[in-house]
Design a protein around this nucleic acid. Sequence first.
RNA 1: GCGCCCGUAGCUCAGUGGAAGAGCGGCGGCCUUCUAAGCCGUUGGUCGGGGGUUCGAAUCCUCCCGGGCGCACCA
Length: 505
Amino acid sequence: MPAQAVERLQAQISAAVGADVELERPKDASHGDFATNVAMRSAKSVGRPPRELAAELAARIGEVDDVDSTEVAGPGFINLRLADSFFIAALSEVGDGYGGGWAAAAPERVQVEMVSANPTGPLLVSHARNGAYGDSVARLLAFGGHAVQREYYYNDAGAQVDRFRASVDALRRGEPVPEDGYHGDYVRDLAAQDGDPLPRMLASIEGTLERFRINFDSWALQSELEQRLPEFMPRLDTYEKDGAVWARSSAYGDEQDWVIIRSADKGGTPTYRAADIVYLTDKLDRGFDKAVYVLGADHHATARWYAAIARMLGYDESRVEVLLYQFVHLTGGGEAAKLSKRAGNVVFLDELLDQVGVDAARWYLVNRGPDQTIDIDLELAAEKSNKNPVYYVQYAHARIAAILRNADASGAFVASRHKLENEERELIKRLTDFPVTAREAADRRGPQLIPAYAIRLADEFHRFYHECRVIGSPEEAFRLGLCRATQQVIARCLDLVGVEAPERM
RNA sequence: GCGCCCGUAGCUCAGUGGAAGAGCGGCGGCCUUCUAAGCCGUUGGUCGGGGGUUCGAAUCCUCCCGGGCGCACCA
C-alpha cells in the first residue's frame, strides 16, 4: 500500500475508474481539493464527449471513501471535495523524513562536482550560484535516498595558475603585475606573505565554502590527475596534427576534436581536456553510478565533450550528467559592470555574505531557476534583504517554535473529530503537496520549486495562525500536532536550500 | 555564420500539455489574546510576435524580433 495519503487516494480512484488517474491540486480553491483530467484524456479513445464521460466517472469517484462530493467543470475536469477524515489521516503521516526516501528501493551513488573555481582568487558571486544550485540538488538527491558525495576540482595546473603565481612574484620583486596577470588587492596581500600563494588561496576558498554551508567530501587536483595521463593514452582515440595530440571527439558525438597535448613549441604540456579525461574515468571507476557536473552557461559546449569522452572510453554516457546554470550579473545602482577576476573589479562571495547574510544569499541564488540569468543590484541587496521572502518563511518557523515553547508540547499526534476550520484544511492540504514537490524538484534538478513551495506553506500557516487560536483552544492537542508537522516541513524546505530554521526572530 | 539559454503584472521572478500566479511597489484597513518580519481588501498581464500540433498551449514544433553566453594548443 502506498505510503502517502494522496497516493493511496489516487490508487483508490484509479481502481474505481478503471484507468490511471492523476490527481492535481487546482490553483483555484473553489475548484475543490483535488481535480483530475482523466475524462478529457480518455474521451477520445473511448469515443465519447468529455463532459458526458466525466459525469459518469464523477459518479463512480463519488463512491470512494473519503470523497465527499464531485462535480464536473469546464471542458471535463472532475473536481473532488474530500472529507475531513482524509486530511486528519494525511496529517498523522507527517513525521521525520516525510516526503523523502523515494529512491530507497534503488539508491544510486552520485557524485556532484560543483564550484570548482580556479584557485587564482577568492570565490565570486557567480561561483556562489554554482554552489547554491549544486548543493541544493545534492541535498534533494540525498533526501530522496541516494548516496551523495560533493567534490571540488581544483584547476591547480596550467596557464591561469602560472599567471597567478607570476603576478604574486612580480609584486614581490617590486615590479608591476603583468598585463595578463591578476590585479586584485588579494594578490598584494598574498605577495606580502612568504611561500607559494596557492595553498593559501585554497584555504581561503575552503573557508568561504564552509561559511556558505557547502560541505565538500573530497577535493580533486588537476595537477595529480594530469600525471596519470600516460596510462590512459592507449585507451584513447587520438591523432597528431600540427605537432599536437588531438582527441578524436568528433567521432563520438562532439562537434569537433580538441587538443589534449600541446605541440612542442607550446610547451608540450597536457591541456585541461586531458585532465578531463583522466578525471571522468577516475570518477566512474571510484564507483559512482552517476557523475554530475555543475557548470556555468559558458561551458554549455562541454556537455558534449564529456559525453564524447565517456563513449570513447567505453562508458555509458548516461552516467555523466551536466547541470548548467545561467550567469549572475552584478549591477551597482543600476549600472552594469563588467566583472573579471583578473581586472580586480569583482564582488567576492564573502562581501556579499557580509552584506546580506548566508540565508538571504542562498535563498536568492537558488530561488531562480538555473536557466534564468540573475541580476543583483548590490546597492539594493542590503535594504531589500528584510523584504526577502526567506524571512517570511523563517518567521513562520519561529512563530511555530514560540507556540510549542509556550505550550510545552511534547505529546504525540492527536486525531480530532472536530469539523476542520478552512485554514486547517488548507494548511494540511499544502503539507500533502510536499512529497510531490520534493520529488519533482529532485527529478527535474529544479531546487527553485522548494522556495516557491515553502512560501505557499508559510502563507497557509500565517493564515491559520491568524484565524485559529492554538493554546487554550478546545482543539489544542490537534493543532499542536498540526504546528509540529508544519514546522518539520518548513525546516526541511529550508534545509534543502541551505537556509537555517530559526527558533526565534 | 553555427550552437545553448532567456523574453509572463510597474520591478524581480515562479509556473516544462489542463481552469493565468507570488514577492516587492502603489492604495485602503487590522495589534488588551500563542512573535505585526504578520493578517485582510484593492490595484495591476494582447504570457515578445506570426503560423502549426492538440479536445485543450505561457508550456510542444516552426519562422521572425529582442537580449545573454559560447564556438582556443585559457580554464
